[in-house]
Nucleic acid binder design. Structure first.
Lengths: 110, 110
DNA sequence: ATTGTTCTGTAGACAATCTAGGGGGACAAC
DNA sequence: GTTGTCCCCCTAGATTGTCTACAGAACAAT
């Protein structure tokens, strides 16, 4: 929290990406737009964070990609959740609830 | 969220420490115990995270220290919030609310 | 004396994110 | 047919916060 220009809580990006793909398969650029919109412009996913994260997730077998063509007729890499990815999303969601609840306890926010 | 042994949300430790000291001045070791208790054993502050964090906060002028003697009659360094620290705590709290709310929006948790 | 507990500290590794770039292809305007 | 603009992908390097794994001093209990 020390830096006011930080637009993400470290450690939550993977979860946010998985959640986005749980709604529907998408290309990388679309994911960042989606996250920004759904968070009402609060969460900004920089490209330098996004693509390494996608690489990471695919490497761990949680998402799968194939090349296609976007809505705007541009070459784009589409991602979708794997079974393992869906399970991982559940784990990350639980952990997020656990930790954010604990922080709110300490901060005195019921 | 990828690591299940992570017992803190990265970026929130400073805020948790400031909050602890907002209740009453304490020594470092006591702060970690307090955070663990208040979070119902969920948040674990390792010593290798705690002391660097305290050093960081003091360096930024948000807390101030002096040596004293603990409840158990041991030498201990007591910390208290400065005026700047109290202000910073407010900022971090706001930012935490902003970001965690945004994440919950994306995750579909009203 | 020895062992356990409390309390402070440091070095080095590690992982996630950011900054700051680069590049190619589609489409519109002119 | 050239120019500009947006869409989309990608990478290197730096920064930062946290973790692991130590070390050590001082008091308590036996």
């Amino acid at each position: 929290m020390s830096k006011d220009r930080l637009e993400l809580l470290q450690g939550t990006l993977d979860m946010l990406i998985l959640k986005s793909l749980d709604l529907e398969p998408m290309h990388g650029f679309g994911i960042s737009v989606r996250i920004r919109q759904m968070s009402q412009e609060v969460l900004q996913v920089e490209q330098g964070s996004l693509y390494p994260a996608l690489y990471r997730l695919e490497n761990r077998g949680w998402i799968r990609s194939k090349w296609g063509v976007s809505e705007n007729n541009r070459k784009a890499k589409f991602y979708e959740l794997t079974a393992a990815g869906r399970k991982q999303l559940g784990l990350e969601r639980e952990n997020w609830e656990r930790l954010s609840t604990a922080i709110n306890l300490v901060m005195g926010m019921a």
